[in-house]
Write a protein that binds this DNA or RNA. Structure first.
Lengths: 110, 110
DNA sequence: CTTATACTAAACCAATTGGTTTACTAAAAA
DNA sequence: TTTTTAGTAAACCAATTGGTTTAGTATAAG
């Protein structure tokens, strides 16, 4: 599916917190919202974005909505990073890193 | 360190394209900008965001700026996803998935 | 020296985002 | 039945974002 949507979904700190929370246990929308100072509606919006990206699934049980992570999509995101690192490593094995000497300084170039 | 900034940085499609491009070879700001229809300045802004997040490094050589991926930070992002998946899997091993197809009336864990 | 190149810096603008409030519905509790 | 709970839906708003243009700086080429 869309790795596109996944990264942009977990790019938001609130949504990453929700995802982390769900990695520990499934939870209802209310349970997910309670740690935040924002309104339930705001959190519900974030949840819908995560749902739209396929990061989580939601299911109505009684009058509450239970949420759970969708492993497949998260695995896809990880694969994107895996592939990236592999391509990068392969290339370095062949060519060497012309920026290697600067690797220690984190400062942006000027 | 700031997985925060990393995910929000690669949450943008233009910036992900830049990162993918850099996984194949290092490149100058001009080289990175050329495939895009937007202005050089717009791409330069994206590059600065990636740099600020620690995803890439930039170095002035002559009058051009050369960019390269910063493996460490990308690895961190991958670790976040790894940890997430590990926590999630561990929990499922212990509890089972209440959203699994036949939908038992399992209460969500706290 | 003069001009072109490869950028950076900053002002500016429209569209998107993240939040609010207000209003609604379905299910459980009293 | 009436009320409360657990949400959804939508209008609305301020701040951020992603783009532009204009202007400036350092280096290389003519």
């Amino acid at each position: 599916m869309a790795v596109e949507a996944v990264f942009s979904a977990i790019g938001d700190p609130t949504r990453r917190a929700i995802v982390e929370r769900l990695s520990r246990s499934d939870a209802t929308v209310n349970e997910l919202a309670s740690p935040f100072s924002m309104t339930l509606q705001a959190v519900a919006k974030h949840i819908r974005i995560l749902e739209g990206a396929g990061v989580i699934r939601k299911k109505k049980i009684g009058r509450s909505y239970h949420c759970a992570l969708n492993r497949a999509v998260l695995t896809e995101a990880r694969s994107w990073l895996d592939d990236l690192e592999r391509d990068w490593s392969d290339r370095l094995d062949r060519l060497g890193d012309f920026l290697a000497e600067d690797a220690k300084s984190d400062r942006p170039a000027q």
